[in-house]
Amino acid sequence: MSETAERVAVTCPSCSPDAETVHEVLKEGSGHATVRCTECSHVHKTKIEREEEVERDVVVSQEGESFTATVEAPPEETVAVGEEFVLDTPEAIMVVRITDLQLGDEKRTEEAEVEDVETFWTRAVDNVRVNVTINPDDGSHDDSKSVKMDVPGDHEFVVGESEEFGDEKFRVKSIALRDDAAGYDFNPLGEKGDRAVAKDVKRLYADDETSSAWSAW
């Protein structure tokens, strides 16, 4: 029996006419498919009820730019802001997070069934750009600088720990979270040991450690 063959749950006229058992799909036909029962190996034809899917537009925001794609999903599935899903586009396969759901007449909502959704508004979260404000190590804010880090969405930042990026080395002082970040007790995070993944981060505030890294010399 093929390990990659599709399997479906249908009744078997030979060993289980009243209850569904697992069958291997041997051949798809017009309206009916040829299947083999994994319990008794009986081969027969049956109609496979497949869940209908509908196509919806998806607007993806990625590093200040946006593009439109489409996704197929069951019409009765409930979706909500903050949920993530894999989006397959001609350019790439990416993970996106729902930031808004647009219904008809440009109405927006945070939760709806797929059949009621006209457009999914999303942002890419598998690879993200994080803004970092770095203050001088003397504690002043006059010469603060801003850098942008491109990191995997699941990269974790921890308050009190050091990060290196290119020629920059800094210690995270606080973490401002995005509006769609979930599962955190506070915003911003400022206690030592507080942590957040990059896809949830709006901005990092940090102290410069670039010069102090050479202080031993």
Rank of each mutant, 00 (worst) to 15 (best):
T119C: 05
D105K: 08
V130L: 07
I134W: 00
N127R: 15
M94T: 07
L177M: 11
A92H: 08
N135I: 08
V151H: 01
P188A: 04
A112R: 01
G183D: 00
H155A: 13
T122R: 01
I93Q: 15
A92R: 15
G104L: 05
D126S: 09
E111Y: 03
K192S: 13
V81L: 02
P136G: 04
S174E: 05
I98A: 04
P90T: 14
E110N: 06
V128C: 02
R129T: 14
E110H: 09
E191T: 13
K202F: 11
S140P: 07
N127T: 15
V130E: 01
K148W: 08
L177G: 02
V151R: 01
G104R: 13
W214Y: 12
K173G: 06
D150G: 10
S162I: 07
N127Q: 12
G190H: 13
F85G: 04
K199P: 03
D207Y: 09
A176W: 05
G82C: 08
V158H: 00
E168V: 04
D142L: 13
P152R: 10
V117G: 00
G82I: 01
D185N: 12
D116W: 03
E118G: 11
K145M: 15
E84Y: 02
P90H: 05
D137L: 14
E91F: 08
E164T: 13
V147N: 03
D200N: 07
